[in-house]
Write a protein that binds this DNA or RNA. Structure first.
Lengths: 131, 131
DNA sequence: TTATTTGTATTATTATAAATAATACAAATG
DNA sequence: CATTTGTATTATTTATAATAATACAAATAA
């Protein structure tokens, strides 16, 4: 699980960290039931503050991507609670993304090809997660 | 061209306005060559500051979605300059979006169906733009 | 038991960004 | 000439991001 934060980016550190953990789950680098580093470990490894990491873990828990055990830290456990809310958010983002892409000349076929590649990668990752 | 800003949202006003204009172009509500309201008109209509609108127009120009004529205001004129840079940004966002969606139980078929609908809507919008 | 580690709550401080406000100015228009 | 355009400037207020230094209850391991 590589974490790489860009402090020069306009994207807040806690958002970058949140996104990379979600991507790590999707890629299968973080498997179901696996433990994340403790907030203090993660903070030291990433060179950021403990409370920033704590904020990220709290967000991921609220979003239903992890559960938090006091003693053993955060555990990867994707739940499907707020599924509808998050799917609506995704649809709205998709329209913006597709609009930007197609205005910049990306064809429908190329867009679908990129989506297909991403889905394929995640399917194999999900299969490996149960070995 | 409806502009609806949510000042209670965590998304900055200037980002909301920028996104809605881009979506308006994609939907064909803003046609090629059409004039946007002047910064002062837009500011009054949306109930926000002139400089906030100016910031949005400057961003849209830098992204290649509009051109700015000093006298007649902003003109819709999608260019394909920074196409590669923006397409890479889209790909990165897509991976995050697909990861979130599929972890929340959205199937590949459903995701592609949503994308297809959006593309269809934009194609008819683009056709109407040349009538 | 005792000592340690966990997530978390609290409070304060600094730095940055967002948004507004009040002007002012050059360029273009009528 | 007077007006309107985008834009530059400067200042101020507000909100957020991030760090920092503690502290504490709960759980674990000695």
């Amino acid at each position: 699980m590589f974490i790489e934060l860009n402090t020069a980016s306009s994207i807040p550190i806690y958002t970058q960290l949140r996104n990379q953990i979600v991507l790590g789950i999707g890629r299968g680098e973080l498997k179901m039931g696996e433990h994340l580093p403790t907030v203090r470990q993660m903070a030291e490894a990433a060179g950021i503050n403990v409370m920033t990491v704590n904020k990220v873990y709290a967000i991921l828990r609220a979003e239903g991507f992890i559960e938090i055990d006091r003693r053993h830290g955060a555990v990867v456990c994707p739940r499907k609670e707020n599924a509808e809310a998050l799917q609506e958010k995704c649809s709205a983002q998709l329209e913006l993304l597709i609009t930007e892409s197609s205005l910049k000349g990306m064809s429908r076929e190329r867009f679908f090809a990129i989506c297909g590649e991403i889905f394929d990668r995640q399917q194999t990752a999900a299969e490996n997660a149960f070995l």
